[in-house]
């Protein structure tokens, strides 16, 4: 009951209302409204092409939208302004991994701290005290995040040379380095085996905090059940169901729309 109250109250961190995105004649999102409360982990599921990635791209402001609003903590997010969204505390991972391949893992994580670096170019060139202090702090925090995600041993390796599963974890560490209030995970378990997926679920539960909202897009229903308290189901750009994982699983619309196609995924 308390959870229901939380999701309907006004202290929602992320509020999406009436979000519509068209690509030419195709409507990828059709007036989608959705909220994620502070401290909540919500899963977004749906068949391929249902608009999940489009939604993530809109919320992270990588993309723009045609109608509707996205607000975080009550203030609106502007479309096609990913830097603005990031600085407001929206962080994300990518379905198709986008690490900075030529850089080390540690440097990858530190990139997300660039906007909060706290020193200028002059200090960097002259090795000023601000620079040294800030760099030490950033390095330390980045190592902690790598330890949290379990890839600290890769810290000095070039990101592009890591095995696939590790790269997924580095992306999560990097997204956390932004100190987000909203974390968007775009199919984090894609391409992972069962053991790795189970460990990832454990990690997602660990990073959940009262002041962090997590929206995770995922196909794997077992993973979703183990990390999310609430699930939203998207089909053809419309929300067709919402509720706890158990409720959603029984929903007739969901069975028709989602389960049919999840067979194809396997």
């Amino acid at each position: 009951m308390s959870q229901l109250a939380a999701t309907t109250s006004t202290d929602q961190a992320l509020v999406i209302s009436g979000l519509t995105r068209r690509f030419g004649g195709v409507t990828a999102l059709n007036g989608v409204s959705l909220g994620v409360a502070l401290g909540e982990t919500r899963a977004l599921i749906g068949p391929n092409g249902s608009g999940k990635s489009t939604l993530i791209n809109c919320v992270s402001a990588v993309d723009r939208w045609d109608e509707g609003t996205v607000t975080l903590g009550g203030a609106p997010i502007k479309g096609r302004d990913p830097v603005g969204a990031a600085r407001r505390g929206i962080s994300r991972t990518f379905q198709t991994l986008r690490l900075f391949d030529e850089m080390t893992v540690l440097e990858n994580v530190m990139v997300a701290m660039h906007h909060a670096r706290g020193y200028g170019l002059f200090s960097a060139i002259t090795l000023g005290p601000r620079f040294r202090k800030a760099e030490n702090r950033m390095r330390h925090e980045a190592r902690e995040l790598l330890a949290l995600t379990g890839v600290e041993r890769d810290a000095e390796r070039q990101a592009g040379t890591l095995p696939y599963g590790h790269r997924r974890l580095v992306e999560i560490a990097r997204s956390l380095a932004l100190k987000p209030t909203l974390l968007l995970l775009d199919e984090p378990a894609a391409g992972l085996n069962d053991t790795e997926t189970a460990r990832l679920a454990e990690l997602v539960r660990r990073i959940a905090r009262p002041d962090l909202s997590i929206l995770v897009v995922e196909h794997n229903m077992e993973f979703v059940t183990s990390v999310a308290s609430q699930v939203t189901v998207l089909d053809n750009g419309n929300i067709i169901a919402e509720g706890t994982p158990a409720e959603v699983r029984e929903h007739p619309e969901v069975l028709r729309a989602y389960l049919g196609s999840s067979e194809d995924d396997k």
């Binding site: 600085r87 900075f100 030529e102 440097e107 530190m110 701290m113 002259t126």
Partner: peptide, 28 residues
Amino acid sequence: RIKNSSYGRAMQAVRDSDVAASSMGVSL
């Protein structure tokens, strides 16, 4: 010095993936 600072890292990030860099708050 530039290379080994946050500025240098931001430049390399933009080079390797501009989408990811901007999503991590780096102004392209």
